[in-house]
């Protein structure tokens, strides 16, 4: 490999990595915000992405609705679905038995339900493609080739993340979410309605998943198993420290870039291994993740 090729690959790897990484970052953010406020890893996050993708596909292709209706409708549907799942199912499970394991199993259950539902409706029986939302044109950035769609994906993802961080840091509801994450008992004692905050957190997580779905669907073939993209989100979350929102974002971009480097420098067949190698490296070298706080011992 000559030095010119190495440079070319580095540029291409970073460019493509940032684009796909921005979607991983969104999914990681959706996972971490739930984990931070309820300490439940949501194993249905991938299926929430998948289901939102199919909602968009259905509205756009089978109902011929214009894009400016399809996008907000998909996001709203995902928000409402996730918030209702939290309220109707998880609240009930939590009340019946305090063990967090049951909550995790309930999220696994939701993932099967969503996948089964998409298969049942017949949309998921063949791989489908999402119609191109904008005419893809190639653009050169340095020596890296990207498309206009790529730029739209990256820009949108970054804007969504910025809006989310602003909400989390500066609004009253965002502060209440942080309070619940730090100390749910104290949050209740100052009058935070836990049920409501949990619903909003799940709703936001569903909405972010839907945005990730809208961004990624035009680039991949859609199947009922496309939720497996969540592996990358979990990898990003673990690399970032699992309780850190900025960590989730950095982790997402890192995983995207690593994945592209592996594909370019090693072999495209090794790509599937990249996230797992990244997870193991992080767990061995820095178990708390890049941005994870000090390990705190909780008084039980």
């Amino acid at each position: 490999m000559t030095i010119d090729v190495v440079f070319l690959f580095l540029q291409q790897g970073v460019a493509s990595g940032l684009v796909i990484g921005s979607v991983y970052a969104l999914i990681a953010l959706a996972i971490v915000v739930i984990f931070k406020t309820s300490e439940v890893p949501n194993f249905s996050q991938g299926e929430m992405v998948m289901a939102a993708g199919y909602i968009a596909l259905y509205l756009l292709v089978f109902r011929s609705m214009p894009l400016w209706i399809v996008m907000p409708a998909t996001i709203l549907a995902a928000y409402a679905g996730a918030a209702l799942f939290r309220r109707l199912v998880l609240n009930q499970v939590a009340r019946a038995n305090g063990s967090p394991v049951n909550l995790v199993i309930a999220t696994l259950g939701l993932s099967y339900v969503l996948r089964g539902f998409v298969r049942q409706t017949g949309f998921g029986d063949t791989p489908r493609s999402f119609p191109p939302v904008i005419e893809p044109q190639s653009i050169m950035i340095g020596q890296a080739a990207v498309t206009t769609l790529d730029l739209v994906i990256l820009t949108t993802a970054v804007l969504v993340m910025a809006a989310f961080f602003w909400m989390f840091k500066y609004t009253k509801i965002g502060r209440a979410m942080r309070a619940v994450g730090m100390n749910p008992k104290a949050a209740q004692l100052v009058g935070v309605d836990l049920t409501r905050i949990h619903m909003i957190v799940w709703g936001l997580s569903g909405g972010i998943s839907a945005i990730a779905a809208l961004l990624i669907s035009p680039k991949v073939l859609m199947t009922a198993d496309m939720g497996s993209i969540v592996t990358m989100g979990f990898a990003a979350a673990i690399v970032g420290g699992f309780t850190s929102l900025p960590g989730a974002v950095v982790g997402g971009f890192l995983i995207g870039i690593i994945e592209n480097f592996v594909g370019l420098f090693i072999s495209s067949r090794a790509i599937v291994l990249a996230p797992f190698v990244a997870i193991m490296l992080v767990l061995v070298i820095r178990p708390q993740g890049l941005f994870g706080g000090r390990v705190e011992i909780k008084k039980v």
Partner: peptide
């Protein structure tokens, strides 16, 4: 009816100002 809980139930990663402002949440 407002409780001052036992122990150190503050919002650890928030500033003192934010903690006080959380008190007026409702």
């Amino acid at each position: 009816v407002v409780q001052v809980p036992e122990g150190r139930e503050v919002f650890r990663d928030m500033s003192v100002r934010e903690n006080l402002e959380m008190g007026a949440y409702r």
